[in-house]
Amino acid sequence: MAFREKLAWALLATTVGGYAVYLLMLRSVTSSAGWDAPVEALVPALIGMTILMIVLAIVGAIVATVSAPQEAGASDERDLAIRRIGRSRAYGVMISGVCGIIILAVSGSNMFQAANALVSILAIAEIVRYGSEAWNYRRGY
């Protein structure tokens, strides 16, 4: 497996893992305070997700680099094309999600719900991006 593909899989796993931690922490918040909790209640979950994602991304990059040191940093037109496709797909998800959040906000959802929806859209868009990259590396582009 090439360096760029390993990195894409590592970042996909990192994003999924970070979002899973966020959902677990969100569950503990909503189980005690419900879905009308103050938006500040999300801060620990956001910090936890961010720290976990940074640590996992660093570990993933180190593992990918150590397993293919001669390829680390090398990037060419195919890598750029695969990244461009991933970003394009993620952008579509992001735009759809933002439109959904606007509809949510207009229809009377509170800040806590809107903030959760926003974090979820960001996470899902990133999952789509890295998933697309990993898929294109694996199946060919």
Binding site: E5, E71, D79
Partner: peptide
Amino acid sequence: GVTRQTIAA
């Protein structure tokens, strides 16, 4: 000026 993986692809 491309990687081995790109040639393989």
